[in-house]
Amino acid sequence: MNGNDPSFAREATDAVRGRLGSLTPAAWALLVISLAVLAFAFAVRPGLFVDNAIGGLVYGMILVMIALGLSLILGLMGVVNFAHGALFMLGAYFAYQVVGAMGLSFWAALVVAPVAVGAVGLAMEVTVLRRIYDQDPIIGLLATFGLTLMVQEAVRAVWGAAPLGFDVPRALQGGTDLGVTTVGTFRIFTVLVATVAVVAVYLLISRTDFGLTVRAGVQDDEMTEFLGVDLPLRFTAMFCLGAAIAGLGGVLRAAESGLGTGMGQTFVILAFVVVVVGGVGSLFGSVVSGILIGEATFMTPVVLTALSAATGVAAFDVSGIQGLVPYLVMITVLLVRPRGLFGEEGLME
Protein backbone atom coordinates (compact mmCIF):
# COMPACT_ATOMS: atom_id res chain seq x y z
CA MET A 1 0.00 0.00 0.00
CA ASN A 2 1.22 3.45 -0.70
CA GLY A 3 1.83 6.23 1.69
CA ASN A 4 0.15 9.07 -0.11
CA ASP A 5 -1.17 11.97 1.79
CA PRO A 6 -4.51 13.32 0.67
CA SER A 7 -4.22 16.49 2.67
CA PHE A 8 -6.12 18.64 0.30
CA ALA A 9 -5.69 22.21 1.30
CA ARG A 10 -1.93 21.97 1.29
CA GLU A 11 -1.85 19.70 -1.68
CA ALA A 12 -4.11 22.02 -3.61
CA THR A 13 -2.09 25.17 -3.14
CA ASP A 14 1.24 23.42 -3.62
CA ALA A 15 0.03 21.63 -6.68
CA VAL A 16 -1.42 24.68 -8.34
CA ARG A 17 1.61 26.76 -7.61
CA GLY A 18 3.86 23.99 -8.89
CA ARG A 19 1.83 23.58 -12.07
CA LEU A 20 1.66 27.28 -12.89
CA GLY A 21 5.29 27.82 -12.09
CA SER A 22 6.38 25.02 -14.40
CA LEU A 23 4.29 25.99 -17.43
CA THR A 24 6.35 26.13 -20.57
CA PRO A 25 5.89 28.90 -23.16
CA ALA A 26 4.11 26.38 -25.37
CA ALA A 27 1.68 25.62 -22.59
CA TRP A 28 1.09 29.33 -22.04
CA ALA A 29 0.40 29.79 -25.73
CA LEU A 30 -2.03 26.90 -25.64
CA LEU A 31 -3.79 28.38 -22.65
CA VAL A 32 -4.14 31.78 -24.33
CA ILE A 33 -5.40 30.25 -27.58
CA SER A 34 -7.94 28.12 -25.71
CA LEU A 35 -9.24 31.16 -23.88
CA ALA A 36 -9.46 33.12 -27.11
CA VAL A 37 -11.34 30.32 -28.82
CA LEU A 38 -13.72 30.03 -25.88
CA ALA A 39 -14.34 33.78 -25.91
CA PHE A 40 -15.01 33.58 -29.62
CA ALA A 41 -17.47 30.72 -29.17
CA PHE A 42 -19.21 32.75 -26.49
CA ALA A 43 -19.51 35.71 -28.84
CA VAL A 44 -21.04 33.57 -31.60
CA ARG A 45 -23.72 31.79 -29.56
CA PRO A 46 -23.79 33.10 -25.97
CA GLY A 47 -26.93 31.15 -25.05
CA LEU A 48 -25.60 27.82 -26.19
CA PHE A 49 -22.25 28.61 -24.64
CA VAL A 50 -23.65 29.23 -21.17
CA ASP A 51 -26.02 26.28 -21.45
CA ASN A 52 -23.17 23.94 -22.18
CA ALA A 53 -20.83 25.48 -19.65
CA ILE A 54 -23.41 24.74 -16.98
CA GLY A 55 -24.17 21.33 -18.46
CA GLY A 56 -20.46 20.54 -18.32
CA LEU A 57 -20.25 21.61 -14.71
CA VAL A 58 -23.20 19.42 -13.74
CA TYR A 59 -21.77 16.46 -15.62
CA GLY A 60 -18.35 17.13 -14.15
CA MET A 61 -19.69 17.23 -10.59
CA ILE A 62 -21.41 13.88 -11.13
CA LEU A 63 -18.11 12.48 -12.36
CA VAL A 64 -16.34 13.94 -9.34
CA MET A 65 -18.81 12.27 -6.99
CA ILE A 66 -18.00 8.87 -8.45
CA ALA A 67 -14.29 9.46 -8.92
CA LEU A 68 -13.94 10.71 -5.36
CA GLY A 69 -14.97 7.40 -3.83
CA LEU A 70 -12.91 5.50 -6.37
CA SER A 71 -9.85 7.60 -5.69
CA LEU A 72 -10.38 7.41 -1.93
CA ILE A 73 -10.54 3.63 -1.91
CA LEU A 74 -7.67 3.34 -4.35
CA GLY A 75 -5.48 5.75 -2.44
CA LEU A 76 -6.27 4.45 1.02
CA MET A 77 -6.80 0.75 0.50
CA GLY A 78 -5.03 0.15 -2.79
CA VAL A 79 -8.11 -1.40 -4.39
CA VAL A 80 -9.47 -0.37 -7.77
CA ASN A 81 -13.15 -0.74 -7.10
CA PHE A 82 -14.79 -1.71 -10.35
CA ALA A 83 -18.10 -2.01 -8.52
CA HIS A 84 -18.16 1.68 -7.82
CA GLY A 85 -20.15 2.27 -11.00
CA ALA A 86 -22.63 -0.37 -9.88
CA LEU A 87 -23.07 1.52 -6.61
CA PHE A 88 -23.72 4.71 -8.56
CA MET A 89 -26.33 2.87 -10.59
CA LEU A 90 -27.92 1.43 -7.46
CA GLY A 91 -28.32 4.97 -6.12
CA ALA A 92 -30.30 5.80 -9.24
CA TYR A 93 -32.50 2.72 -9.01
CA PHE A 94 -33.13 3.10 -5.29
CA ALA A 95 -34.24 6.66 -5.94
CA TYR A 96 -36.53 5.41 -8.68
CA GLN A 97 -37.96 2.88 -6.26
CA VAL A 98 -38.68 5.56 -3.68
CA VAL A 99 -40.02 8.24 -6.02
CA GLY A 100 -41.27 6.44 -9.10
CA ALA A 101 -42.53 3.15 -7.70
CA MET A 102 -43.51 3.99 -4.11
CA GLY A 103 -44.64 7.53 -4.87
CA LEU A 104 -42.73 9.11 -2.00
CA SER A 105 -41.05 12.47 -2.15
CA PHE A 106 -37.80 13.13 -3.95
CA TRP A 107 -36.41 14.58 -0.73
CA ALA A 108 -36.87 11.21 0.89
CA ALA A 109 -35.02 9.57 -1.96
CA LEU A 110 -32.18 12.03 -1.60
CA VAL A 111 -31.56 10.65 1.88
CA VAL A 112 -32.76 7.07 1.64
CA ALA A 113 -30.98 6.10 -1.59
CA PRO A 114 -27.44 7.08 -0.54
CA VAL A 115 -27.95 5.44 2.85
CA ALA A 116 -29.18 2.26 1.18
CA VAL A 117 -26.22 2.31 -1.21
CA GLY A 118 -23.96 2.78 1.79
CA ALA A 119 -25.53 -0.34 3.25
CA VAL A 120 -24.85 -2.30 0.07
CA GLY A 121 -21.31 -0.95 0.21
CA LEU A 122 -21.07 -2.21 3.77
CA ALA A 123 -22.13 -5.68 2.66
CA MET A 124 -19.58 -5.64 -0.16
CA GLU A 125 -16.81 -4.46 2.09
CA VAL A 126 -17.42 -7.02 4.78
CA THR A 127 -17.88 -9.99 2.48
CA VAL A 128 -15.38 -9.30 -0.29
CA LEU A 129 -13.30 -6.11 -0.13
CA ARG A 130 -11.90 -6.81 3.31
CA ARG A 131 -10.27 -9.97 2.03
CA ILE A 132 -8.38 -8.23 -0.73
CA TYR A 133 -6.78 -5.18 0.87
CA ASP A 134 -3.48 -6.95 1.31
CA GLN A 135 -3.48 -8.70 -2.03
CA ASP A 136 -2.31 -7.91 -5.49
CA PRO A 137 -4.44 -4.99 -6.75
CA ILE A 138 -5.42 -7.04 -9.79
CA ILE A 139 -7.29 -9.42 -7.49
CA GLY A 140 -9.30 -6.48 -6.19
CA LEU A 141 -10.11 -5.34 -9.68
CA LEU A 142 -11.27 -8.82 -10.66
CA ALA A 143 -13.31 -9.45 -7.54
CA THR A 144 -15.10 -6.12 -7.78
CA PHE A 145 -15.70 -6.77 -11.46
CA GLY A 146 -17.53 -9.95 -10.39
CA LEU A 147 -19.55 -7.91 -7.89
CA THR A 148 -20.47 -5.52 -10.70
CA LEU A 149 -21.89 -8.39 -12.71
CA MET A 150 -23.97 -9.51 -9.77
CA VAL A 151 -25.37 -6.05 -9.09
CA GLN A 152 -26.11 -5.48 -12.75
CA GLU A 153 -27.96 -8.75 -13.06
CA ALA A 154 -29.85 -8.09 -9.84
CA VAL A 155 -30.94 -4.69 -11.13
CA ARG A 156 -32.09 -6.26 -14.37
CA ALA A 157 -34.05 -8.87 -12.44
CA VAL A 158 -35.78 -6.37 -10.18
CA TRP A 159 -36.35 -3.36 -12.40
CA GLY A 160 -35.99 -4.76 -15.90
CA ALA A 161 -33.73 -3.53 -18.66
CA ALA A 162 -35.92 -0.73 -20.02
CA PRO A 163 -34.92 2.89 -19.36
CA LEU A 164 -36.80 4.53 -16.48
CA GLY A 165 -37.24 7.99 -15.03
CA PHE A 166 -38.95 9.94 -12.29
CA ASP A 167 -40.03 13.48 -11.52
CA VAL A 168 -38.39 15.98 -9.23
CA PRO A 169 -40.42 18.22 -6.87
CA ARG A 170 -41.96 21.37 -8.25
CA ALA A 171 -39.56 23.55 -6.30
CA LEU A 172 -36.69 22.19 -8.39
CA GLN A 173 -38.45 22.17 -11.73
CA GLY A 174 -38.31 25.80 -12.80
CA GLY A 175 -35.45 27.77 -14.16
CA THR A 176 -33.57 30.97 -13.64
CA ASP A 177 -33.32 33.48 -16.45
CA LEU A 178 -29.76 34.55 -17.13
CA GLY A 179 -30.58 36.79 -20.07
CA VAL A 180 -28.87 34.73 -22.74
CA THR A 181 -30.41 31.49 -21.55
CA THR A 182 -32.37 29.86 -18.77
CA VAL A 183 -30.69 27.55 -16.28
CA GLY A 184 -32.73 24.70 -14.88
CA THR A 185 -33.09 24.96 -11.12
CA PHE A 186 -32.30 21.29 -10.76
CA ARG A 187 -28.92 21.80 -12.35
CA ILE A 188 -28.05 24.45 -9.81
CA PHE A 189 -29.33 22.13 -7.11
CA THR A 190 -27.11 19.30 -8.39
CA VAL A 191 -24.03 21.48 -8.38
CA LEU A 192 -24.80 22.71 -4.86
CA VAL A 193 -25.42 19.25 -3.42
CA ALA A 194 -22.34 17.85 -5.12
CA THR A 195 -20.18 20.70 -3.88
CA VAL A 196 -21.39 20.24 -0.32
CA ALA A 197 -20.70 16.50 -0.50
CA VAL A 198 -17.23 16.95 -1.95
CA VAL A 199 -16.24 19.64 0.53
CA ALA A 200 -17.56 17.53 3.39
CA VAL A 201 -15.38 14.58 2.35
CA TYR A 202 -12.43 16.90 1.99
CA LEU A 203 -12.85 18.22 5.48
CA LEU A 204 -13.54 14.81 6.94
CA ILE A 205 -10.30 13.43 5.65
CA SER A 206 -8.03 16.37 6.11
CA ARG A 207 -9.36 17.89 9.32
CA THR A 208 -10.89 15.24 11.57
CA ASP A 209 -9.38 12.60 13.83
CA PHE A 210 -11.20 10.03 11.79
CA GLY A 211 -9.41 11.04 8.60
CA LEU A 212 -6.10 11.31 10.41
CA THR A 213 -6.26 7.84 11.90
CA VAL A 214 -7.22 6.27 8.60
CA ARG A 215 -4.31 7.97 6.90
CA ALA A 216 -2.00 6.93 9.69
CA GLY A 217 -3.26 3.39 9.25
CA VAL A 218 -2.34 3.50 5.60
CA GLN A 219 1.20 4.58 6.47
CA ASP A 220 1.74 2.03 9.21
CA ASP A 221 -1.16 -0.21 10.07
CA GLU A 222 0.55 -2.20 12.81
CA MET A 223 1.61 0.86 14.72
CA THR A 224 -1.78 2.51 14.34
CA GLU A 225 -3.60 -0.55 15.61
CA PHE A 226 -1.11 -0.80 18.41
CA LEU A 227 -2.20 2.68 19.45
CA GLY A 228 -5.73 1.35 19.87
CA VAL A 229 -7.37 2.38 16.61
CA ASP A 230 -9.85 -0.06 15.16
CA LEU A 231 -8.64 0.15 11.57
CA PRO A 232 -10.90 -2.40 9.86
CA LEU A 233 -13.90 -0.51 11.24
CA ARG A 234 -12.58 2.75 9.86
CA PHE A 235 -11.82 1.28 6.47
CA THR A 236 -15.35 -0.06 6.36
CA ALA A 237 -16.72 3.36 7.23
CA MET A 238 -14.56 4.91 4.54
CA PHE A 239 -15.83 2.47 1.97
CA CYS A 240 -19.45 3.09 2.94
CA LEU A 241 -18.87 6.79 2.65
CA GLY A 242 -17.46 6.44 -0.86
CA ALA A 243 -20.40 4.21 -1.79
CA ALA A 244 -22.95 6.64 -0.40
CA ILE A 245 -21.50 9.57 -2.34
CA ALA A 246 -21.56 7.55 -5.55
CA GLY A 247 -25.17 6.66 -4.71
CA LEU A 248 -26.00 10.31 -4.19
CA GLY A 249 -24.46 11.05 -7.58
CA GLY A 250 -26.70 8.35 -9.02
CA VAL A 251 -29.80 9.97 -7.55
CA LEU A 252 -28.93 13.35 -9.02
CA ARG A 253 -27.99 11.95 -12.40
CA ALA A 254 -31.14 9.83 -12.63
CA ALA A 255 -33.41 12.73 -11.69
CA GLU A 256 -32.07 14.78 -14.55
CA SER A 257 -31.27 12.24 -17.25
CA GLY A 258 -33.20 9.09 -16.37
CA LEU A 259 -31.71 5.70 -15.59
CA GLY A 260 -30.73 2.52 -17.39
CA THR A 261 -28.75 -0.65 -16.72
CA GLY A 262 -25.77 0.62 -18.70
CA MET A 263 -25.16 3.73 -16.63
CA GLY A 264 -22.95 2.08 -14.02
CA GLN A 265 -20.56 0.69 -16.56
CA THR A 266 -20.38 3.90 -18.59
CA PHE A 267 -19.72 6.04 -15.58
CA VAL A 268 -17.20 3.82 -13.88
CA ILE A 269 -15.07 3.92 -17.00
CA LEU A 270 -15.34 7.70 -17.09
CA ALA A 271 -14.44 7.80 -13.42
CA PHE A 272 -11.32 5.73 -14.17
CA VAL A 273 -10.46 8.29 -16.83
CA VAL A 274 -10.98 11.08 -14.31
CA VAL A 275 -8.70 9.39 -11.77
CA VAL A 276 -6.00 8.72 -14.36
CA VAL A 277 -6.14 12.30 -15.65
CA GLY A 278 -6.17 13.76 -12.15
CA GLY A 279 -3.31 11.54 -11.08
CA VAL A 280 -3.70 8.34 -9.11
CA GLY A 281 -3.48 9.05 -5.40
CA SER A 282 -4.56 12.67 -5.51
CA LEU A 283 -8.11 13.45 -4.40
CA PHE A 284 -7.62 17.05 -5.36
CA GLY A 285 -6.57 15.91 -8.82
CA SER A 286 -9.77 13.89 -9.15
CA VAL A 287 -11.89 16.95 -8.38
CA VAL A 288 -10.07 19.17 -10.86
CA SER A 289 -9.99 16.56 -13.58
CA GLY A 290 -13.67 15.64 -13.10
CA ILE A 291 -14.74 19.22 -13.69
CA LEU A 292 -12.19 19.63 -16.48
CA ILE A 293 -13.47 16.56 -18.30
CA GLY A 294 -17.09 17.56 -17.76
CA GLU A 295 -16.45 20.98 -19.23
CA ALA A 296 -14.29 19.68 -22.06
CA THR A 297 -16.99 17.20 -23.00
CA PHE A 298 -19.65 19.88 -23.22
CA MET A 299 -17.62 22.78 -24.55
CA THR A 300 -15.80 21.02 -27.38
CA PRO A 301 -18.90 20.71 -29.59
CA VAL A 302 -19.81 24.35 -28.95
CA VAL A 303 -16.37 25.53 -29.90
CA LEU A 304 -16.21 23.32 -32.97
CA THR A 305 -19.63 24.42 -34.18
CA ALA A 306 -18.65 28.06 -33.73
CA LEU A 307 -15.39 27.54 -35.57
CA SER A 308 -17.03 25.76 -38.45
CA ALA A 309 -19.73 28.44 -38.74
CA ALA A 310 -17.14 31.20 -38.73
CA THR A 311 -14.60 29.65 -41.05
CA GLY A 312 -17.02 27.85 -43.30
CA VAL A 313 -14.90 24.73 -42.94
CA ALA A 314 -17.40 21.98 -42.35
CA ALA A 315 -14.67 19.61 -41.24
CA PHE A 316 -14.53 21.36 -37.87
CA ASP A 317 -18.06 20.30 -37.14
CA VAL A 318 -17.28 16.73 -36.15
CA SER A 319 -20.66 15.43 -35.17
CA GLY A 320 -20.69 13.50 -31.95
CA ILE A 321 -17.11 14.20 -30.94
CA GLN A 322 -18.55 14.74 -27.47
CA GLY A 323 -18.37 11.18 -26.19
CA LEU A 324 -14.79 10.85 -27.33
CA VAL A 325 -13.53 13.96 -25.57
CA PRO A 326 -12.76 12.37 -22.17
CA TYR A 327 -10.53 9.80 -23.84
CA LEU A 328 -8.79 12.40 -25.97
CA VAL A 329 -8.13 14.43 -22.83
CA MET A 330 -6.80 11.30 -21.15
CA ILE A 331 -4.44 10.38 -23.96
CA THR A 332 -3.16 13.95 -24.23
CA VAL A 333 -2.53 14.17 -20.51
CA LEU A 334 -0.76 10.82 -20.50
CA LEU A 335 1.51 11.88 -23.31
CA VAL A 336 2.36 15.21 -21.72
CA ARG A 337 2.25 14.32 -18.03
CA PRO A 338 2.42 10.54 -17.65
CA ARG A 339 1.51 10.63 -13.96
CA GLY A 340 -1.62 12.66 -14.51
CA LEU A 341 -2.16 16.29 -13.60
CA PHE A 342 -1.48 15.95 -9.88
CA GLY A 343 -0.06 12.44 -9.60
CA GLU A 344 2.88 11.71 -7.38
CA GLU A 345 5.90 9.71 -8.35
CA GLY A 346 5.84 6.00 -7.70
CA LEU A 347 2.19 5.58 -6.81
CA MET A 348 0.46 2.43 -7.97
CA GLU A 349 3.48 1.37 -9.95
Binding site: V80, P137, I138, L141, I269, F272, V273, V275, V276, V280, S319, G320, G323, L324, Y327, L328, M330, I331, L334, L335, P338, M348, E349
Partner: peptide, 28 residues
Amino acid sequence: RLIVEKGEIYFAMLTLAVGEAVYFVVNR
Protein backbone atom coordinates in the same frame (compact mmCIF):
# COMPACT_ATOMS: atom_id res chain seq x y z
CA ARG B 1 4.39 1.67 -25.88
CA LEU B 2 2.17 4.34 -24.41
CA ILE B 3 0.86 2.54 -21.34
CA VAL B 4 2.91 -0.54 -20.54
CA GLU B 5 5.39 1.12 -18.23
CA LYS B 6 2.73 2.49 -15.93
CA GLY B 7 2.07 -0.66 -13.98
CA GLU B 8 -0.61 -3.29 -14.03
CA ILE B 9 -3.47 -1.30 -12.52
CA TYR B 10 -2.97 1.56 -14.90
CA PHE B 11 -2.78 -0.95 -17.71
CA ALA B 12 -6.17 -2.42 -16.85
CA MET B 13 -7.85 0.97 -16.47
CA LEU B 14 -6.28 2.39 -19.62
CA THR B 15 -7.10 -0.55 -21.84
CA LEU B 16 -10.66 -0.31 -20.58
CA ALA B 17 -10.81 3.38 -21.42
CA VAL B 18 -9.18 3.00 -24.83
CA GLY B 19 -11.53 0.10 -25.61
CA GLU B 20 -14.46 2.34 -24.78
CA ALA B 21 -13.06 5.10 -26.99
CA VAL B 22 -12.65 2.66 -29.88
CA TYR B 23 -16.22 1.45 -29.38
CA PHE B 24 -17.32 5.03 -29.52
CA VAL B 25 -15.52 5.74 -32.77
CA VAL B 26 -16.85 2.61 -34.45
CA ASN B 27 -20.33 3.47 -33.26
CA ARG B 28 -20.11 6.88 -34.96
